[in-house]
Design a protein around this nucleic acid. Structure first.
Lengths: 158, 158
DNA sequence: ATCCGGTAGTTGACATTTCTACTATGCTGG
DNA sequence: CCAGCATAGTAGAAATGTCAACTACCGGAT
């Protein structure tokens, strides 16, 4: 007789487990180190920095709140709070959306732009120091490509 | 004449930038998805789960607070808060360290162990679904090995 | 012995994030 | 038109994380 429907968990073998753990631990340490560098040298958290980067790349330094939330892979609520604080500090401005009465556009101010430019060199140096320069070129590519796959898979589902 | 000492930032080329961004975005989405699965199905956050895993692997289900903090790459303060909450829920116990008057040993209880065992299959399935099974075997290895290098570099300093 | 710099851990204030509920607007079918 | 469902964004409370003291203990040098 065949066994009944399999619901046994398929465990990870030792290699897989090690890879997963190295990933998790490395990711925590890396984002931590980069966040600390930014906070210390530029008074920005890593996600505030990311906000400014996205806005700086947008057509008129402007994005809808929901676009921002989607790009940062954050909840709308978190985005609202973050932007409210950044607005209080003068880095961004919000105004109602012309074409969609529900929408809110978020624009980076000159002060925000200046802060980003001031922060960028140190941040990039840290990304080099802790990531780019410790890996060989093929290693970095492999890392990036693997994560792109993971990212795409996660974006697909809801 | 030679230019004065170089302090120009060495920017990332487009490839490097893309890899770094894919990494960051993928890492956020991945840890997010895994955290949500754990919280929803087992009432544990990812870092609480990690605490239980480390304790389950320790000789007598026991680790010093500082060992725990080091292994999880967390501040001592955060570890104290987390463990206090977990102790209140009955998953761990703390008691003074015999040989070092400053130390505190943290031990996983039977309830903690049971909770971990209940949570593990679903968590492992999620790790497979979002990471292990979406990558080829060499891709996963490359990812793991690259992150091991990053991790080692970050552990060295400080 | 005791002074001193360093380590272990905790605490409480504060900041950020999450969760849930809520308002307002848009859109589609009858 | 308007009913009903979905989307955009916000708000406040609760949970979690960070930061800066602070206590207590260790261990070596004087």
């Amino acid at each position: 007789m065949a066994t009944t429907t399999e619901h046994e968990p398929r465990w990870l073998d030792l290699e897989q487990q090690r890879h997963w753990r190295d990933f998790l631990d490395g990711a925590v340490r890396l984002t931590d180190a980069l966040g600390q560098q930014l906070e210390r040298d530029s008074g920005l958290s890593l996600s505030e920095y990311e906000v400014l980067v996205r806005l700086s790349e947008a057509p008129t330094r402007t994005l809808r709140m929901s676009e921002l939330a989607d790009e940062l892979a954050q909840s709308r609520s978190r985005t609202t709070h973050t932007i409210r604080r950044m607005e209080a500090r003068g880095f961004v401005e919000r105004r109602a959306c012309k074409d969609d009465g529900r929408g809110v556009n978020c624009t980076m101010t000159d002060a925000g732009s200046a802060r980003l430019e001031a922060a960028a060199p140190g941040h990039v140096a840290a990304v080099r120091e802790h990531l780019v320069d410790v890996l060989s070129e093929p290693q970095l590519r492999a890392l990036g490509e693997a994560m792109a796959v993971v990212r795409a898979a996660l974006r697909a589902r809801r």
